[in-house]
Design a protein around this nucleic acid. Sequence first.
DNA 1: CGCTTATCCGACTAGTCAGGTAGGATTTAA
DNA 2: TTAAATCCTACCTGACTAGTCGGATAAGCG
Lengths: 155, 155
Amino acid sequence: MLFSTKAEYGVRLMVELGRQPDGKPVSLAAIAESENLPLSYMEHLVAKLRNADLVDSQRGAHGGYTLARPAAEIDMLEVVQALEDTIAPMECFHDTPEGRVSCSHQDDADHACATKLLWTRVQGGVNKALSGTTVAELVKFADGDVRRASLAAHS
Amino acid sequence: MLFSTKAEYGVRLMVELGRQPDGKPVSLAAIAESENLPLSYMEHLVAKLRNADLVDSQRGAHGGYTLARPAAEIDMLEVVQALEDTIAPMECFHDTPEGRVSCSHQDDADHACATKLLWTRVQGGVNKALSGTTVAELVKFADGDVRRASLAAHS
DNA sequence: CGCTTATCCGACTAGTCAGGTAGGATTTAA
DNA sequence: TTAAATCCTACCTGACTAGTCGGATAAGCG
């Protein structure tokens, strides 16, 4: 498995939020019910999204969550990175502050890390796919042949 | 972490085998020592590679393993697929016999699986990176020739 | 024929973590 | 003031990763 359910659930959550046409906050309970996901588990996930400034929260009655930015300006690389602790292809890949990939295995003159080329390419492919997809796009896809979302029916 | 050490170790193993110029079998002990990896753990991995017809084995004294095919004809998608139990991006993706991806979540008329588009793209990116890289290429890279060549994912 | 080198094979295990639960504190609208 | 919601911390549990171990089998060699 490439990603865990954290990414799966979190992406669904973002899509549900992006689905809300006006700026009205949506409660987690509504999302959890509509996607049939455990509410208390989602609380952990949405906390990560909030820490990453991807969603805003409104506490109290009639509170909930909203996208922090327009859905078209949030790409999936941000979302997945916020949810998964790491999306590096291998353990030996640790992101440097400059954002470059590097490998902790030796990279000497006589013996290069043979797998570095491969994992770099894989990560490139994943990042490209993630950063090239926005929340808005997924919303459109989900709504494509569907008239009404179950969540919209509730509000 | 996208992949486990199974893929990491297994790819290293394949590269070591591909490094052997003649068809002489290489013992696991030699590889384990040269890559500084646990021998008894590697035995499990090489068994998977053998079952996938990626390596041939020669038992007994002076035995060992050889690539089942020329290094240029073995791509990393085969290798990684043999090692990892699944490389689907998400749990809900199960490969159908025809090789197409599908999602086990409901895709009914009233609620399309919003994340399907995303995971399909991700898997496409990973598969492309893996299938576009051969053992021979990694061998060449490790030997230092192509060190400055395409590190980034090419198309 | 043993002896050594190697692959093969299955059982077992410590540690980690994903996935989820539980309980309560805090904030806010009506 | 009460209900609806976020927020926060701790805890649990089964599965899986990353091994280890002991031995069976097979092949070359003197």
